[in-house]
Design a protein around this nucleic acid. Structure first.
Length: 423
RNA sequence: GGUGAGAUGGGUGAGUGGCUCAAACCAGUAGUUUGCUAAACUGCCGUACGGGUUAAACUGUACCGAGGGUUCGAAUCCCUCUCUCACCGCCA
């Protein structure tokens, strides 16, 4: 959520930046500033009247202590007239504050200066490519065939138990998940991240804090009886650990990592690219989150990108890094890098990680602050990234490493997986 | 699920209607003094939204788990909810 004072003081800049994100309702900014002016006026009126009530109340107390009942009675009547005024002001103030908040929540985060213009995924900029694209022989098959061949995942039974898009991992397929999770976590811990195992459901406030609410209700599974949402990513519980906290400046950066399953309804996005592991409702992911000093957040974003890149290098997967254009970025992000790996048998790039700087967009909602060296409260910056999302990594590992004798496990995973080959 | 006890500032914790613009202590911080792997003393030490100022000073309002209510006046009384702890029941 953007701050009104910032909007007011940087009106042209804000409008230009919103345009980069292809946000069309630009006049909303002017409306917000106007609403805030009204809010201030009403607040002033309220404060003044309430002040009179407070003074009068004290006087009444003194009159009564002295036994001057008549004076007290007169003062009481006076207060009564103030109170009807206060009631009216409060009603107006409440409705304006609500409207102001509703409007503010509709504004996406401002893109950083580094964000390229553009509307479509094709406008994203490839900033780096790495790894070797394997040359598969003619008998090579997509991962869904390999999954069947080696009996790694039973999609049909998953659908029987729950529904389509809920894979049932089995045997070596299940063990490969466990090996990847374990490796990713160890890798993150070695880089200084603290491991968490958070709740997989969150309440409304948490979903609101990271920006899932309002607006994206439809993307999350909802537990009606208890008002809980299944998490779409570990980002939600992890970042909310520090909601409403004032952290010590010298405790920054705060680095957190967690494995969680992720639940996504993917409403409306089915129809294509959904075979096998390309898109599912429940998947495993290891996430990294940082709460950082605002001066450092872009430096740290680069570090996180390098961190994820090294993970893909360690897995020997061909990858590329994209800098997302304004139109393809998420609502809350100021700058995002996507990672894609090359799925050799599908001849397709698949997104496996997204690393973003949210600047103060989330921390403003969550009130994650620190006291700076001047003793002033300041919002921290938040960042997060996947390291990594498993299904598409598995798809690529299977396809790219298939041989006549079986699927070769990358060296770094062998100790975790317990063998070199799936056969 | 039942019963009971709780929720106060960074921490401990006092406060059952106006003397609390929340005591005291600890931690933090600035200074003074003595001197030296420290002690004593003194001051300062919440957040949000405003007013005010070049900036400060100064100043208004709100906030004692959340939301309502009673009252001229609520941390304090009443109602609802949430959470924590203890015991009981059920249970992996």
């Amino acid at each position: 959520m953007l701050q009104v004072a910032f909007l007011r003081n940087n009106l042209e800049l804000v409008k230009n930046k919103l345009a980069v994100k292809n946000f069309t309702n630009i006049q909303l900014v002017d409306e917000i500033i106007e609403l805030d002016e009204q809010r201030k006026k009403l607040q002033l009126e309220f404060d003044g009247t309430q002040s009179k009530v407070n003074t009068a109340s004290k006087e009444i107390g003194q009159f009564l202590a002295k036994g001057e009942k008549e004076k007290a009675a007169i003062a009481k009547q006076e207060v009564a007239t103030f109170k009807t005024g206060i009631q009216q002001i409060t009603e107006k103030l409440n409705s304006i504050e609500k409207l102001l908040l509703d409007n503010l929540l509709q504004l996406p985060n401002l893109p950083s200066d580094l964000v390229p213009k553009g509307k479509l995924p094709s406008d994203n900029i490839i900033v780096k490519e790495g790894g070797l694209i394997p040359k598969l022989d003619a008998t090579a098959v997509p991962h869904w065939d390999l999954i069947k061949k080696y009996d790694l995942i039973d999609f049909e039974t998953g659908a029987k138990i729950t529904g389509s898009g809920f894979p049932l991992y089995k045997g070596k397929g299940a063990k490969l998940q466990r090996a990847l999770i374990q490796y990713f976590l160890d890798y993150n811990i070695a880089a200084g991240y603290t491991e968490y195992l958070p709740p997989f459901m969150v309440n409304e406030n948490s979903a609101y804090g990271t920006g899932q609410l309002p607006d994206k209700e439809g993307q999350m599974y909802f537990m009606q009886a208890d008002n809980f949402y299944m998490i779409p990513t570990a980002e939600v519980p992890l970042t909310n650990i520090y909601r409403d906290e004032i952290v010590k400046e010298n405790s920054l950066p705060i680095k957190m990592t967690a494995y969680t399953p992720c639940f996504r309804r993917e409403a409306g996005s089915f129809g294509k690219d959904v075979r096998g592991l390309n898109r599912v409702h429940q998947f495993d992911k290891v996430e990294i989150v940082q709460i950082v000093h605002p001066d450092k957040s872009y430096e740290i974003l680069n570090e996180m990108v390098a961190h994820v890149e090294q993970l893909l290098k360690n897995l020997n997967l061909p990858y590329r890094i994209l800098k997302l254009c304004g139109g393809d970025m998420s609502f809350a992000s100021a700058l995002t890098f996507d990672f894609e790996v090359y799925s050799a048998a599908q001849d397709k790039w698949l997104e496996v990680s997204s690393v973003s700087n949210f600047e103060t967009f989330q921390t403003n909602r969550m009130k994650i602050r620190f006291k700076n060296e001047n003793g002033k409260m300041q919002l921290a910056h938040s960042l997060n990234g996947s390291s990594l999302a498993l299904p598409r990594i598995v798809a690529c590992l299977l396809e790219n490493n298939q041989t006549e004798n079986g699927i070769q496990i990358p060296e770094i995973l062998q100790a975790y997986f317990g063998s070199k080959l799936i056969d």
